[in-house]
Amino acid sequence: MNRTFGDRLILVLVIGAAFVWMMPMLWVLSLSLRPNEELVRSTAGILPWPKTLEHFATLLRVSLTPRWLLNSVIVAFGMTALTLLLSSLAGYAFARIDFPGRRAVFLLVMAGLMIPEQAILVPLHAMLADWEMHNTYFSLIAPRLAGPMGVFLMTQFFKAVPRELEEAAELDNASRLKIFWSVMLPLSRPALTTLGIFTFLFAWNDFLWPVVTATQPEMYTLSVGLGSLQGNFAMSEGLGFLMASAVFASAPMVILYVVFQRYIVQGITLTSGK
């Protein structure tokens, strides 16, 4: 392909923009690897680095960060597994089982897409306060299982699966549950992967609900914990520690992104319909 001067110029400009784009993250990474004594004098430049891992050591030894990491892992995996299970069960019913009231129930569920989390934040808090369930994994996970997006995606997916694949199993007189489990679920691995990655990303980065329901530092997720550190910007541990926390909290997402980039970019077009 012959490339014109215009194409080259655009490419050069975009490469420049990409460097500017990456600069904040690279700079923070470099700050997290410099000793505090140096940071007090100057935060200029990106190089030379790395110099020290002391901030990461502090983070793991004396802060609550390991606990927050554990909470985030539990919440993210729990929410992902349960979302996949609930969505695929419901999606299968909507796509494949002819039961009375199907259309009405489907519309009722899809109407939930119109209700934003902010609209139910306050009553949800009141409800869980009544149950005395705040500051539990249950309250961090359960309200997030009510969103209809996963059901919508799985319904669309199951509808597109050719009928013939189930008919063989139906002739064998297999039960619905067995057909679902041993025929449909294995077929839906691509859809489940996409939904799973997005749920995991969402759970990991979730902020509004966790900041409301988790008020005890032991129950913070990484995202909430990092937010709480920003309250005391001039904290005793110093700038290096703060920057190391930011790097630490984003590292799992960077890894996930590098591994699953293809799915993430594909999934975006999927989740936003067409």
Binding site: N205, S223, L226, Q230, L242, A249, M253, I264
Partner: peptide, 19 residues
């Protein structure tokens, strides 16, 4: 590169940009 900043949580983004 341009898509990557999307994957960070709001707390990471605000901490980085506050700085």
């Amino acid at each position: 590169v341009f898509f990557a900043s999307n994957i960070f949580s709001v707390t990471v983004v605000t901490l980085v940009w506050s700085m």
